[in-house]
Structure formats: structure tokens, C-alpha cells
Amino acid sequence: MRKALLGLMLVVPTLAVAQSEELENPGTVAAVQERAFRMNHELVLGLGALPLDAFYKGYYGHLAYAFHFSDSFAWQVIRGAYTYNVNTGLRDQLERDFGVVPTAFEEVQYFVGTDIMWSPLYGKSAVLNSSVLFSETYLLLGGSVFKLTNHFRPAVNLGLGVRLFQSKYLSFRLEGTNDFVISDKPFNIITLQLEAAVNFGATE
């Protein structure tokens, strides 16, 4: 009981201060601005990497097209990438010293996919207090098909990306995705990519 009273005594003055502030400066203020950058048809060109496989590192060129239904919702209609793979030392050692055949390693050769893009965060940052940088953060959910060394495999794609707006027509995307490859032994393929996006047909 005493503790409850003590708690009440501590909380009440806080509420009183809040009320006093409301009395002194009633009302709320917000900055309402026209959205500086709006996307419509987006063509994406980028470079990426498959960094996590222990037996090879993949580097790929990436091309995509996305259509934005609104400022927060878009469909990345098609995306595709072709990879250039570089063996790691471990793989070389396995092949050389233990006679493992190269086809035993499943490598990504190319992949295509489609995603839904949801951009709940849009904001701006002050760059050294001298300019303003607009950006948005988006989530990706979609499907991919990977051409591996020996098979085609479907995958569910989840991703997170940040877009930095350069101008009405040009923005840069940095995103990371994780594809859950569906197979007898499911595994993940993680991608990191940096992309330049060209925007067409924006009304603003």
C-alpha cells in the first residue's frame, strides 16, 4: 500500500507538468510537405555478391523492373542476375587433395525472381548540417528460381533495402536478401547488392 502511494506521488507531478505544458502552449505542430520523390516505373541496374558460401564467392550483374502502385507499395515485376563465381581456397584444397569432383558443389549460375516491395519508412537526414538526403527503407517478399550447377531450384525471397534518392529520376538501392531454397535439403542463399534505379513517368 505504501509503495503504491509512493508510486502515485511520483507519477502525479509528471502528469501535472504535462498538463501545464499543454496549457501554456496548447496545440500541436507538424511540418507538412509535398513528398519530394515519388517512384513510378523503375528500371534497376546493379552489382551484387553471394558472400556466404564457403566453397565459392559469386559476383553478379543484376537487372530488374519494378512498378510502384503507391509511395509505399510496389511490385518488382522481374529481376534477374547472372553470376561469375570464384572458388575459395577450401574448395581448391578439397578438389586437389581429396579428389572431390567439381560437380559435387552446387553453385548458383543465374537466377530470376519477382517481389512485392513495401516501403513503410520514408525520411530525410541532415548531411553535415548543410544538405538534406531523402531515403526510404523497404522490405521485399517474393519468389526466385535459381539455376544451380546441376538443378533448377525454387526459393522464397525475403529482403531488406535502403533507397537513397539522388534526384527525381535517379536513386541508389542497397539491399540484402535471403532466399530459402526449397529442396530435399533446404538451404539459404544470401545476396548483397548495390543498384542504381532509374525512375520513369513520375508525376512529381
Binding site: T28, V32, Q33, E34, K124
Partner: peptide, 25 residues
């Protein structure tokens, strides 16, 4: 409107917002 963005004001002034404040009471 759908084309607008609203930034709640928390006593931090941004030069690009100075002409865009809206008061509500």
C-alpha cells in the same frame, strides 16, 4: 493528401520545413 508527408514537430527546426508548419488546436 496522398502526395504529402507529415513530420511531427518536436522542437527541432529544419530549414527545408520552415514554410510548411501546420498548427492544430
Amino acid at each position: 493528401t496522398p502526395t504529402q508527408v507529415r513530420y511531427h514537430f518536436v522542437n527541432e527546426y529544419w530549414n527545408d520545413e520552415l514554410r510548411n508548419y501546420r498548427f492544430s488546436l
